[in-house]
Design a protein around this nucleic acid. Structure first.
Length: 262
DNA sequence: TTATATGTTCGATA
DNA sequence: TTATCGAACATATA
């Protein structure tokens, strides 16, 4: 689920179900401890008896401020999500459960365990240390173009590089490139200013719409490419150009050959 | 059985 | 040193 819009929706969900509730217990359910980048001991010490006071998001990285001033950092990997529940309705793949004084429980679920749970000082320090670029929704066209000047790799690879700007994931990258009519393998520094402007604008619009629709793909505009991201699908604007699949930077990539070519 | 999945990291290589 | 490539991670489903 988790690209920028999905994480933003998750942030709002977290706000609704977790803010200002005292944490009384934590259940660590990931036997392999893959998702705990801070030890369970550190996480417990930082959270028990405390509450979350606000949240921040940089790209796909979510931060919840703890009443002590520290932050809980959550990353949802490929399959992470949050589920509020009561009683013993423990959701599948729960890896960490927060118990609140109210009796409610919040589960961080993550089938594939590519997610991250850790305690950090603050979002800005984390961003700097991890060399993460600014959130895509906050950057200017100038910043976007500047960041794409150096790389000699495929444009899609750069779009997915969180160090350039943060928040673009696999389906949004394909959506942007389709919208702008750019082949994903084109070298970023060879792409014209006009095309980059188109790409930037497409990204801003796609993300805004995805958030406005609560990331429910079914409610997206009918011409959104994400609904046609499969081999041989026919996008209404190109009924004679079946969707093709290639691999770029190790990620499955879908294009409409009539609109995106080298 | 093989391929794929909305992400990131790390070791090898150029 | 720096940039790039590709495998690896853990699990489910088609």
């Amino acid at each position: 689920m988790p690209e920028l819009p999905e994480v933003e929706i998750m942030r709002r969900y977290f706000n609704e179900c977790a803010l200002e509730k005292t944490i009384i217990q934590l259940d660590f359910l990931d036997e392999l401890a893959k998702v705990y980048k801070s030890t369970p001991e550190v996480i417990e010490k930082s959270l028990i008896g405390q509450r979350f006071t606000e949240t921040e998001r940089i790209g796909k990285y979510l931060f919840a401020r703890i009443s002590t001033g520290q932050y809980l950092h959550l990353h949802f990997g490929m399959t992470g999500n949050l589920v509020l529940f009561q009683g013993d309705n423990l959701p599948k793949y729960a890896r960490l459960v927060f118990h609140f004084e109210s009796g409610e429980k919040l589960a961080f679920c993550d089938l594939r365990k590519f997610g991250v749970i850790e305690i950090v000082d603050n979002p800005q320090a984390y961003q700097k240390a991890a060399k993460i670029g600014d959130d895509f929704l906050t950057i200017s066209l100038e910043y976007f173009k500047e960041r794409l000047k150096k790389p000699t790799v495929a444009i899609k690879t750069s779009l997915l590089n969180q160090k350039l700007f943060a928040g673009i994931g696999n389906w949004i990258a394909d959506e942007m490139l389709f919208e702008a009519g750019i082949h994903p393998l084109r070298i970023s520094k060879d792409i014209s200013e006009a095309e980059l402007a188109k790409l930037y604008k497409a990204g801003q619009e796609i993300i805004a719409i995805a958030i406005a629709e609560d990331t429910h793909y079914g409610n997206f505009p009918a011409d959104f490419f994400v609904n046609y991201r499969k081999i041989d699908a026919l996008h209404p604007s190109h009924p004679n150009s079946p969707v093709e699949r290639l691999v770029v930077g190790g990620r499955g990539t879908f294009i409409v050959p009539e609109k995106q070519f080298l």
